[in-house]
Computed example of a mutant assay.
Amino acid sequence: MNAQHDHNTPEDRPSGTSDSESGVEIPEWAPIEPLPSSEMVLAAIAGMVQVTATAILDPAGEFVECQRQYRSALAVLNQTSASAEQMKEAAAVLASAKSDVDMLIMVIDESVADRLLQRRKDRLHMRPSAPPADSAPNVVVHTESVGMIAARMAELWERLVAKASDLDELPEAHQLCELCAAYDAFAAEIESGRRLPPGL
Results as ranks from 00 to 15, higher is better:
residue 99 S to Y: 10
residue 43 A to W: 00
residue 74 L to N: 04
residue 46 A to T: 03
residue 177 C to W: 05
residue 54 T to R: 15
residue 2 N to K: 10
residue 89 E to M: 10
residue 160 L to I: 14
residue 81 S to L: 09
residue 129 S to I: 09
residue 155 E to G: 08
residue 123 R to Q: 15
residue 70 Y to R: 13
residue 48 M to V: 13
residue 157 W to L: 01
residue 199 G to A: 05
residue 186 F to M: 13
residue 73 A to L: 02
residue 177 C to F: 08
residue 51 V to W: 10
residue 68 R to E: 10
residue 136 A to E: 12
residue 131 P to W: 06
residue 80 T to P: 05
residue 58 D to C: 09
residue 123 R to N: 10
residue 132 P to I: 04
residue 192 S to M: 09
residue 134 D to M: 11
residue 132 P to D: 01
residue 175 Q to D: 05
residue 20 S to P: 02
residue 171 P to E: 03
residue 15 S to H: 15
residue 6 D to S: 10
residue 37 S to Y: 00
residue 8 N to A: 06
residue 188 A to C: 05
residue 65 E to F: 12
residue 16 G to C: 04
residue 93 V to P: 01
residue 200 L to T: 01
residue 152 R to C: 04
residue 59 P to G: 07
residue 68 R to M: 09
residue 141 V to L: 05
residue 49 V to E: 14
residue 106 M to W: 02
residue 160 L to N: 12
residue 73 A to G: 01
residue 167 L to C: 05
residue 61 G to H: 06
residue 104 L to H: 03
residue 62 E to W: 10
residue 125 H to F: 10
residue 191 E to W: 06
residue 110 E to M: 08
residue 43 A to N: 03
residue 112 V to I: 12
residue 82 A to G: 07
residue 2 N to F: 10
residue 183 Y to Q: 02
residue 197 P to A: 11
residue 195 R to A: 15
residue 4 Q to P: 06
residue 53 A to I: 06
residue 22 S to A: 13
residue 133 A to Q: 12
residue 39 E to G: 05
residue 78 N to D: 09
residue 87 M to T: 08
residue 22 S to E: 13
residue 37 S to K: 00
residue 85 E to S: 14
residue 181 A to C: 04
residue 169 E to G: 07
residue 67 Q to G: 06
residue 131 P to V: 08
residue 84 A to T: 12
residue 90 A to G: 06
residue 162 A to Y: 02
residue 198 P to E: 03
residue 139 V to T: 10
residue 73 A to I: 03
residue 60 A to F: 02
residue 93 V to D: 03
residue 161 V to R: 15
residue 79 Q to E: 12
residue 62 E to D: 14
residue 97 A to Q: 01
residue 109 D to A: 02
residue 89 E to N: 11
residue 84 A to D: 13
residue 141 V to N: 04
residue 114 D to Q: 11
residue 75 A to K: 06
residue 162 A to W: 02
residue 137 P to M: 02
residue 144 E to F: 09
residue 191 E to N: 13
residue 132 P to G: 05
residue 135 S to D: 08
residue 164 A to L: 14
residue 175 Q to L: 09
residue 87 M to D: 08
residue 156 L to V: 06
residue 52 T to N: 14
residue 103 M to L: 15
residue 63 F to H: 13
residue 160 L to Q: 15
residue 88 K to C: 09
residue 180 C to S: 07
residue 65 E to H: 12
residue 164 A to I: 15
residue 3 A to D: 14
residue 37 S to F: 01
residue 80 T to Q: 10
residue 111 S to N: 08
residue 139 V to S: 03
residue 47 G to D: 05
residue 68 R to I: 09
residue 192 S to K: 15
residue 12 D to Y: 04
residue 124 L to D: 08
residue 62 E to S: 14
residue 192 S to E: 15
residue 79 Q to C: 09
residue 101 V to R: 07
residue 37 S to R: 00
residue 194 R to I: 07
residue 20 S to K: 11
residue 160 L to E: 12
residue 110 E to A: 04
residue 39 E to I: 10
residue 154 A to R: 02
residue 25 E to P: 03
residue 160 L to R: 10
